[in-house]
Amino acid sequence: MNKISRRLFLKLSLGAGLLASSGYIFKTVLWPSQVTPDETKTLSAYLDTLIPPDVTPGAVQLNVPEMIISKSRTDRKYRRLIKKGCRWLDTQAGDFKTDTFASLGGETRQEIVKIASEAERSSLPGIFFKQIRLDAFFYYYGTAESWEGLGYDGPPQPLGFPDYTYPPGEIT
């Protein structure tokens, strides 16, 4: 039986290690998989905490999660941020004896979102909070259903605002 030399053994080991790690790097960094159903649940719960329903619909009712996931399909950096952010949320949920952020009650979810909102801006929860906050408002307030109560009779056209010289609401 041929013996494998120590040098060859080291080479093979190194090669196998590189292959394994390159697969890991490819999957998690270069080309992360699409957002999974479990991650969608976490993201939806998070978005409904950022924009809860009250007299106007919440983020989920206006399909904000779908719009954000749709954006993530063609933007791998963004997708990676969402996946990491959801993992962070679920990890935080573990402190409350639960597996997922989505299974938490409203007040506990708010506690966790508060932690993210106050996190260092360059940290994962800080970046996740800032980016998803911007995007959630971008999609949510891009729907006419969200405008009720704002005193806004948009969109700007075709009617315009010919009452512009009067106090708002004085002329209907």
Partner: peptide, 13 residues
């Protein structure tokens, strides 16, 4: 409304 939500009004929820 989008720019108000992103730039004018602080916070969330």
């Amino acid at each position: 409304p989008i720019n108000y939500a992103q730039r004018v009004v602080k916070g969330w929820g």
